[in-house]
Design a protein around this nucleic acid. Structure first.
Lengths: 266, 266
DNA sequence: TCGCTATGTCTTGTATACCAGATGATATTC
DNA sequence: GAATATCATCTGGTATACAAGACATAGCGA
């Protein structure tokens, strides 16, 4: 009889649990990454409140935060909307990421023994047989790898900014680890970068890292567009028989496009 | 009979005015920059609500945002606190700033005619007689100068990050423009940087910019500590006659230090 | 005088009430 | 039948009510 709970909170009301707003924040963010909330989708605070069991106050705090981080937009008095996937923004974020990580390499190679690098080597410089193959697992390791490069600079503010960028691009970047040859490439490139770092060949490390990020960016873009195209086709097929006239006069433009229009689909 | 209004809002309830939370946010932030809210000071949401005339809801939203930006801290159920001035954090932010602006120079000098650079030249490359001398005015121009360097890259996300850093360091950076020789130095160094950029001498521009930021950082640190020492002395003098026994047993440590302890005061 | 306890007050965190603007369906007019 | 006016409904923005933890202090006992 209740509405279908896509995510429920089920929270014990014992004392010092983390703030409810924080739980809702994480719930909604996970839903975004899992595409349970689709780009372009509109929803209300009331909906999220009912789905999570919280009241509008903490929900609102969570949504406001997600909006400030670029995931959502609040429309005057007419609801919230999941932001479109905008590849021009992702390109900007990949550039920021490159800038930060290259600067980190500069600082790492100046240190005699950069913090945490040996641990990274133990993960990435392994025989092929010992490599992980699961996409989500490698994706997590990949984020940790790049995260550690920045953390090792010992500059928490730089790290904080990098973390923010990582979260922004996660929604598309995770798709890069659904193809096995991309996982292989990640292993190879990470291993090479670590070699260059431990041997204090800073310029080579930077060159390798820049190429690594750029290749990943291009791959992610390609895969994302492919997946979104598929998803759109599925939606079209499903929607068509039920709603044959729902195509607007604008020639098949969906009311909620999954991606913002792109000129060149490199 | 009312409490003294340090800042009042006086808001017309006409339609599409900006959100009340945003107004409160700006009010409080200005109060922080003006040292009307001192580092270490504690206050409650109720106080701010009464001072601004808003209710707790938008106040809370504003304070939460300021906390996320690093200005405030909320203590469990016992009020808000203005964060201490932590020079180790400022050093980190100055380093982030340097990284971002150097990367911007790289991108600027690759362009044939970087956007907005001629406008900057018209401001900074002027005869000494035409230079502004007012501290606040030059401070504003200084922020605009560095801001424009990043904006000209055409990367809004990079720009957004730089803006955030600028706001974080503003509270101490503004003090750099209270000394005339620092204003002179700013004019000279900005002019030189612009020359190097327009002549596409990227490496020289970067070297000049890095030195410029580093000198500013050191100066700001020196001036800030000096000012805070003065302020603390004033507080001590004023507090002493009224509250002679308020010094705790810890040997004169103030309960709310204006700065976190620093080992080396370079 | 010192230490401890109980209690009352103040604080945030959360839930709810209220309001005005936005929206979309429906009635109306030409 | 098409364009337009109307109105009921839904939305976020704001104010307020309520709950429970934190903290200071007064009181009490020794």
């Amino acid at each position: 009889m209740n509405p279908p709970l896509r995510f429920g909170l089920d929270r014990r009301r014992s004392s010092d649990t983390p703030a409810l707003a924080e739980l809702v924040y994480n719930q909604v963010k996970q839903a975004l990454f899992a595409f349970e909330l689709l780009p372009g989708e509109r929803f209300s605070e009331k909906t999220v409140a009912e789905l999570t069991g919280a009241s509008r106050t903490p929900v609102r705090e969570a949504l406001t935060r997600l909006a400030r981080e670029g995931f959502l937009t609040v429309q005057n008095r007419s609801g919230w909307r999941v932001n479109d996937l905008d590849f021009s923004v992702f390109d900007q974020l990949y550039e920021v990421r490159t800038i930060v990580e290259l600067a980190s390499i500069d600082r790492l190679t100046a240190q005699t023994e950069p913090y945490g690098i040996t641990e990274l080597a133990a993960i990435w410089q392994v025989p092929e047989a010992d490599r992980l193959t699961g996409g989500p697992a490698v994706f997590t390791l990949d984020e940790q790898f790049h995260n550690q490069l920045v953390a090792a600079t010992g500059n928490p503010e730089l790290h904080r900014i990098h973390t923010g960028v990582t979260e922004r691009i996660r929604i598309v970047r995770q798709l890069d680890f659904t193809e096995s040859h991309r996982i292989e490439a990640t292993y190879n490139e990470h291993a090479a970068i670590l070699s260059a770092i431990t041997q204090h060949r800073g310029n080579e490390a930077k060159r390798l890292l820049q190429t690594h990020i750029e290749l990943s960016r291009q791959s992610v873009r390609k895969i994302s567009l492919h997946r979104l195209y598929e998803a759109r086709e599925r939606m079209r097929e499903r929607a068509a028989p039920l709603n044959p006239v729902s195509e607007t006069a604008a020639g098949g433009i969906r009311p909620n496009p999954l991606v913002t229009p792109q000129e060149n689909l490199t």
